[in-house]
Design a protein around this nucleic acid. Structure first.
Lengths: 233, 233
DNA sequence: AAAAATCTTTGATCTAGATCAAAAAACTTT
DNA sequence: AAAGTTTTTTGATCTAGATCAAAGATTTTT
């Protein structure tokens, strides 16, 4: 059987292992802002699933039924354009929350796992209920939204104004900072996504990404440890 | 005296005219979500100022002392890059709120008036106070943030994936939609900003913007009424 | 209303990154 | 471990939009 088989049956993680109290992403998650009663409630209504590489989590246009939280692994958030091209909005890391939007009707973007990922899902009604009665959660959501706006602003400068090599360098630095935030070594970094994903994220082609990496290597700005692992000088 | 003199002395709008009850932007503003008591409070602590073309409202790096609301006119939100280039994050219209950020410490972007604009300012402490005790205001802020994220996502696709002519066309359509939202005719539209601003917003050069407009005219996609007014076919 | 300043358009040329093509490397399956 | 598949890199060529340059419009000042 192929490694990346989308139709692979998923086994729901058994409750013992999925418990919030054992969640390594809790500290960086929205759940980290909840009190014990709230976490207990989340623990009871959340579902935790293991996703394989390239397995879809939700798709643009689908009705919004759940919100999601990344427990481990990575996720890419992307939009398919009418002409079939893909634009990647961002990559998610453990502790990142997704699925909320302004209209709450249908998902605007699609999400799929990059490599193996554990994702918790919350039915919107139950999560909204919890949120409604908790200013802490609302405040945390607001804060995360502001951070996302600021990140998107930086990203629009990167895409709009920087050359290919500089976009790549900023991308590597962002991964480094993100890793630090969740307690991983910030150098060297690993690239969970492939070259095409990097291209679709930075608004470049795969060839330009490849050439850019080669040149950054020659310029001694980075050192490739292997295809998906690099050291930033 | 030059029309766009930055150092023009401002006359604070007299309270009678600046009253919230007479504000034509109230319906589209955050203030439109407030009850009478809250509006009364806002009315008492807000300050309303007239800005002239190119006059700064706040500057990136300055300590955040106030939030702002556009009462009339237009504003550009931009970031100056290290090399002196400008990236415009967006254009604001009556009813738009600005100044809030995730860290609340310093402004990340700069803001200046495009043409004459009336802007209300709120001292952060007084506004935060109001917000703290009003779930409606918080909810409205959250909603606006989501809309901004979604707008930025669309914008990143426009900048990253579309050709010059298509970027311009999307830009005109966005202005049209925005005008409709605030009760102005959605066609023809006026362009309050100049060609350089459009270029800095769409990550193009002024020459490419100019040529793009000429070509859209030739393709019968738009009809220029004058330099700053156009009809979308 | 003429002169000066600013903004916009048009023309000629250049280039970063796209596209087309193929080799090399890294994985998967048998 | 050989064959097949997918991903990444490298090479050659092309092009949309940048850059450099100057002419027209429009606005501001005198």
């Amino acid at each position: 059987m192929k490694k990346n088989d989308l139709y692979n049956q998923q086994v729901e993680k058994q409750s013992q292992l999925a418990k919030c109290s054992l969640c390594s992403a809790k500290r960086f998650s929205i759940c980290g802002k909840m009190d014990e009663t709230q976490v207990k409630k989340v623990d009871s209504f959340k579902r935790t699933k293991n996703y394989k590489d390239k397995q879809p989590i939700f798709f643009q246009g689908d009705p919004v039924k759940s919100y999601f939280n990344v427990r481990s692994g990575n996720v890419k958030i992307y939009r398919l354009l009418d002409d079939g091209r893909m634009h990647i909005m961002g990559f998610l890391y453990p502790g990142d929350f997704m699925g909320l939007s302004s209209d709450q009707d249908t998902y605007l973007n699609s999400a799929e796992a990059i490599g193996n990922a554990e994702i918790c899902s919350f039915a919107i009604s139950e999560f909204d209920d919890l949120n409604k009665n908790s200013p802490e959660i609302t405040k945390e959501l607001l804060k995360r939204n502001f951070q996302e706006i600021e990140f998107m602003q930086k990203q629009s400068i990167i895409i709009g104004k920087l050359h290919a090599k500089d976009r790549l360098m900023e991308f590597f630095k962002n991964i480094s900072a993100q890793r630090k935030k969740i307690g991983l070594p910030d150098n060297p970094i690993s690239l969970p996504m492939n070259r095409q994903d990097i291209a679709d994220y930075l608004a470049l082609t795969i060839e330009t990404v490849s050439r850019g990496i080669t040149e950054l290597k020659n310029d001694q700005k980075i050192k490739m440890i292997d295809k998906n692992k690099l050291y930033i000088n």
